[in-house]
Design a protein around this nucleic acid. Sequence first.
DNA 1: ATAGGGTTAG
Length: 564
Amino acid sequence: MLRENVIPDASTIAMLLRAAASIVKLGFEFNLFLQTGLLNFYAKVGNLESAKRVFVEMPERDSVVHNVMIAAFGKQGYVSDARKLFDDMPERSSFSWNSMISCYCRLGDIENARSIFDCNPLKDVISWNTMIDGYCKLGQLTVARELFDHMGCAKNTVTWNTMITGYVQCREFRKAISTFHEMQAEHVWPDEVTMISLLSASAHLGALDMGNWIHAYVRRRNFKIDVVLGNALIDMFSKCGSIDAALDVFYGLPKKNVFCWNSIIVGLATYGYGRKVIDTFIDMQKAGVKPDGVTFVGLLSGCSHSGLISEGRQYFSQMLSIYGIEPGLEHYGCMVDLLGKAGFLEEALELVKAMPMAPNTIVLGSLLHACQVRKDAKLTEQVAEHLLDLDPHDGGNYVFLSNFYASVNRWHDVEKCRKLMVEKGVQKTPGCSSIEVDNVVHEFVAGDSSHPQLSQIKLFLDDIGKKLISLGHQADMTPVLHDIDEEEKESAVRYHSERLAVAFGLMCTPPGKPIRVVKNLRACSDCHAAIKLISKLFERDIIVRDRSRFHHFRDGSCSCQDYW
DNA sequence: ATAGGGTTAG
């Protein structure tokens, strides 16, 4: 039962205790062997009090018993109890040392973990792995890598996995992938855990080729696609703009837990398939899986992206009453976005005022976007200033406010805004778009000319620009006129990062192959219009994942139907 | 008995 990870309940424990009692009744001596078994049981169940009682009552305690107790204390964060036992031990094995290291690491006490590690005369691969993971969990990747590079024993699969997941957890996705290549070069066999971490990295990078390779590898090695690996595949495919492949994996899974349902619902939502989101939500309940807060984020954002206003309102109001889930900040955020996008500005504003918690920058950002949709100057200014108060270090907010002032010709305020930015030392987050070509992720960052083919790409874009004009494209210069940095004005819109990435894709991939781009910010309106035409001009599907959703451009139009 | 794994609003 324990091996199957089924948590025993009180009646199971009662039965076991009865069995233990009958052992005594039958004349068996309640010896060290039986007591160790009982202690083990209590430790696994997490019943520390009973475990302690058995431990104290034992006539003699060997090293194994100590280790069980130390591990039990450690798992629940009772580090001083664990340490006391550890210090009192007559004879320590590597298990004891490793339990102590992992206990300190779990609590984030890296100094004590390290001093135990350094004193440990029996350092084995587990000691190294635990220590490396401890540093990774605190974001100290350089120290982790230092240990990783200078290990006193051979690395195993777990060692590599620890380093790779460390990079993924710290959002160093490219380093995660390059570390995997080193792992292959050293002929260490990757396992399911490796695949899951790599899938997460590919999902974030939008690296579909890498994701496809992993999928093929998983099948070649006959890895069992359980809920975790399945979920990682679903998430990778949907984040890489391949929602059909995500659906294939999803429907092919024999067992689906709430993670799997959530991933596919969130995936469908970012694609703007609102109806399908709702159908899937209904299927989820039919399958007997209870929705959670994340499910509602997907459901509500799905309604928002598809303009399903009454459905969104309905599900939001049912969250607590029917599903027993208290709406959180993120759910209010979805609703503000849903109402604001649809033009219900007053209602969105009322909701922000009525929220039981203070709005964050995301909520206010949605509200700001709603003000723009309605062109409400007074409210725009209010919200933008509130936003600056809340987060004075996000350059995007200053740019937005400055652009707003410029659009109403308040040049004095534009200047004030610019000065404030300089004073606070705030930098605008540069737009960054990436595209994967031949298994390499190419990044284009606004204002950065490090890409070796940048000048060719720009020439190609100029050429495209002329063709677009002949197709009737009128450049929307609003973002250029109002851009804060003088130098950026010239090339700002024409060389926006998403356009560089799309052009590079057109240059480097065979005709007919879909182009997939990932952008860190919201797509700009002029680029949106231009890419629509480019999709027609070059007869290419172009799939852009921006900060909030997918835009699938085909034959001159976009899947968002210009509602975004 | 000790190490590595998945979903979240713009």
